[in-house]
């Protein structure tokens, strides 16, 4: 039996596991439908409020921000319960005991969820264009696509950290649900950060989605998004590293105390 080079094995594992997770998520058409429709309800409310403004740019601002809401929802609500789902399916122990580092097995899971967010993002922009006549003019398409993709990866790192942090919390899905609104608010998706007190804006600045939506808006407006995107990527990397370290420590503790299954 031939052993694959680690250089090839890791990317192969990430891609195959990501694809399997996408297929698992796609088994429920209802869930997939909700993933797209749920942020649309809030986006529609926001569009109905913002359309009173005489400035057409406000609607573009709202549309781009609202499009990121689905990405955050996909991460916050579903990543928090990702390990609960594995536990319920009886596969958590198998994942933990496999020779692949546990942190590496989580990245494709949260990555698949973030990919669903991409689907929701497209749906929100399309909804805004079709129903509210919000122009979809992107000044720098290449930069825009780069911003969207890197944003998704960075946000999935937040999901990675969330999923690890709440591995021993039996009702993690409730925590994920409660993070949805604060994320939408704090990351400046629909409301400018300048409206918040300094300490709140300070919290916003350590969240990758804040910089992600800023980079996306800058690329759409024809401004340079690279500084915002760089900060978003750096924060995403930091979240990923912290989550990897945390996952090893939390797992070691859970195994020592036999609390992994929480039964």
């Amino acid at each position: 039996m031939t052993r694959r080079s680690p250089l090839l094995a890791v990317p192969r594992f990430l891609i195959v596991a990501w694809w399997i997770q996408i297929k698992i998520i796609a088994t429920s058409a209802f869930d997939g439908f909700l993933q797209v429709v749920w942020p649309l309800f809030f986006a529609t409310s926001a569009f109905l409020v913002y359309r009173v403004s005489p400035d057409p740019d406000v609607m573009v601002y709202a549309a781009l921000g609202a499009s990121m809401m689905g990405v955050w929802s996909a991460i916050a609500t579903t990543a928090s319960s990702a390990l609960q789902r594995e536990r319920f399916g009886g596969t958590l122990e198998l994942m933990v005991s496999s020779p692949t580092p546990f942190a590496l097995t989580l990245i494709p899971i949260t990555g698949a969820m973030a990919s669903l967010g991409l689907y929701s993002m497209g749906a929100t922009l399309l909804w805004g264009w079709l129903v509210f006549d919000i122009p979809l003019h992107i000044a720098s398409p290449v930069a825009f696509v780069a911003c969207v993709l890197l944003s998704i990866i960075s946000v999935s790192m937040v999901g990675f950290m969330l999923s690890v942090t709440v591995v021993r919390y039996r009702t993690a899905w409730a925590l994920g649900n409660v993070l949805e609104y604060p994320g939408w608010l704090l990351c400046g998706f629909l409301v400018p950060l300048s409206m918040f007190p300094d300490w709140v804006a300070g919290v916003s600045r350590v969240l990758p989605p804040t910089w992600a939506v800023q980079a996306i808006r800058e690329s759409a407006n024809g401004e340079s998004p690279w500084v915002s995107l760089g900060i978003c990527a750096a924060l995403g990397l930091a979240y990923g590293i912290v989550a990897a370290v945390l996952s090893e420590n939390i797992l070691r503790s859970a195994r020592r105390q036999a609390t992994l299954s929480l039964t």
Partner: peptide
Amino acid sequence: LLFVNLGRAADV
């Protein structure tokens, strides 16, 4: 809080 701030931002 989300919608109060949204209303403030849109001045509606």
